[in-house]
Deep mutational scan, measured.
Amino acid sequence: LQAFIKTLTGKTFTVEMEPSDTIENLKAKIQDKEGIPPDQQRLIFAGKQLEDGRTLSDYNIQKESTLHLVL
């Protein structure tokens, strides 16, 4: 599935991932794409901060969901 990552500066980019991917995997993909170390990334979806060990499906993240990236 493709999801949108929106930063506080208003920049939006897309990442490809599977519902079974962990938040940790997602942070690694963001690092590959944007060069931001995972330990500096905080991802917010539906008002909740996402925990590394959980999966996208745990948070009911669907295709074309928008996640907010806070540094």
Rank of each mutant, 00 (worst) to 15 (best):
Ser20Trp: 14
Ala3Thr: 10
Leu67Tyr: 03
Glu16Ser: 10
Gly47Gln: 04
Gly53Ser: 12
Glu24Lys: 13
Asn60Cys: 05
Lys33Phe: 10
Asp32Tyr: 10
Lys27Arg: 05
Ala3Gly: 04
Gln40Lys: 12
Tyr59Val: 04
Gly10Ser: 03
Ser65Asp: 14
Leu50Ala: 02
Leu8Met: 14
Thr14Ala: 10
Lys48Pro: 02
Phe45Pro: 00
Ile30Asp: 00
Gly53Cys: 06
Lys27Glu: 00
Gly10Glu: 03
Leu43Asp: 00
His68Gly: 04
Ile23Trp: 02
Gln62Ile: 12
Lys29Ala: 07
Ser65Trp: 06
Gly35Met: 04
Ile44Pro: 00
Leu67Gly: 02
Ala46Gly: 11
Ile23Gly: 00
Asp58Val: 03
Phe45His: 08
Val15Trp: 02
Glu51Leu: 10
Phe13Glu: 00
Asp21Pro: 01
Met17Ile: 14
Pro19Gln: 09
Ala46Glu: 15
Arg54Ser: 07
Gln2Val: 15
Lys63Val: 09
Thr22Pro: 04
Lys27Val: 01
Pro38Ser: 14
Met17Arg: 00
Ile5Cys: 05
Phe13Ser: 01
Ile44Asn: 05
Leu56Arg: 00
Gln31Arg: 13
Ser57Tyr: 09
Phe45Asp: 00
Thr14Glu: 06
Ile23Leu: 05
Gly47Met: 03
Leu50Thr: 03
Lys29Val: 07
Gln41Phe: 15
Ser57Phe: 09
Ala46Lys: 14
Ile30Ser: 00
Leu26His: 01
Glu18Thr: 11
His68Ala: 06
Pro19Leu: 12
Thr14Gly: 05
Gln40His: 13
Thr55Met: 10
Lys29Asn: 03
Thr7Asp: 06
Glu24Leu: 15
Lys33Asn: 05
Ala28Arg: 15
Ala3Asn: 03
Lys11Asp: 07
Asn60Ile: 09
Thr66Gln: 08
Glu64Thr: 10
Gly47Thr: 03
Thr9Cys: 13
Glu34Phe: 14
Leu43Phe: 05
Gly53His: 14
Gly35Lys: 06
Ser65Ala: 13
Phe13Leu: 06
Glu34His: 11
Leu26Gly: 00
Ser57His: 09
Leu71Gly: 06
Asp32Ser: 11
Thr7Ala: 05
Ile30Trp: 01
Val15Asp: 00
Lys11Ser: 07
Lys6Ser: 10
